[in-house]
Design a protein around this nucleic acid. Sequence first.
DNA 1: ACATTAAGTGATT
DNA 2: AATCACTTAATGT
Length: 212
Amino acid sequence: MDKNDIVQQLGNIFEPNLLEEIVLKGVLRKFSEGAEIILIGQKITHFPLLLSGSIKVLTENEERQELLLYYLEIGDTCAMTLKCCMGDSKSNIRAEAEQDTELIMIPIQHMEEWMVKYSSWRRFIMNSYHERLTEMQEAIDNLAFYDLKERLIKYLRDKAMINGTGILNLTHNKIAEELNTSRVVISRLLKKLENENLITVGRNNIEVAEFM
DNA sequence: ACATTAAGTGATT
DNA sequence: AATCACTTAATGT
């Protein structure tokens, strides 16, 4: 991916002068599927702008139990990282490449400067906060108001959407971890969903039906 | 052939 | 819905 591609991907979001600065100051990075992008407790020196692929963002407690929060797609940035730029600079989330992903990493010192200089940057930041906050709210009432079976259905549907395919390479164990439950329970629920013809399950993969 | 990892099952809380 | 203990099946070396 070269400069022209970057301009292409982000051209609708940012004004030309800002685009130039992004290309100039940013560092291009690639992560392959499954790679860890940000770890909990990691110090944040750059914040990511997503060029291609997708990233999943999770929280984790002291016992290393995790919970999926939301996905980032092209043109998104991580609001949690933005938060880190403001105050204390340790990450309280974990980010992992959901697919092969290209990012442009921008040193955090440009944050504030750009807020003053570029209106498209201000709009972008506000927008990101808004979107992420909305997604967080969804994640919360998902947790509070739905049982595990419904959460699992949502999880599979989102995953299929993000990956653009109904065929998901997942183990029951991975799903259980991301939904913070146990493998046995997931296995049983998947079997139920299969009986309802919503999915078909195989070893290391699940196929989500079209209409789901 | 053997060890490892993923998934299925029944019983219990 | 979680946990335990155990089985079966698939896969890697």
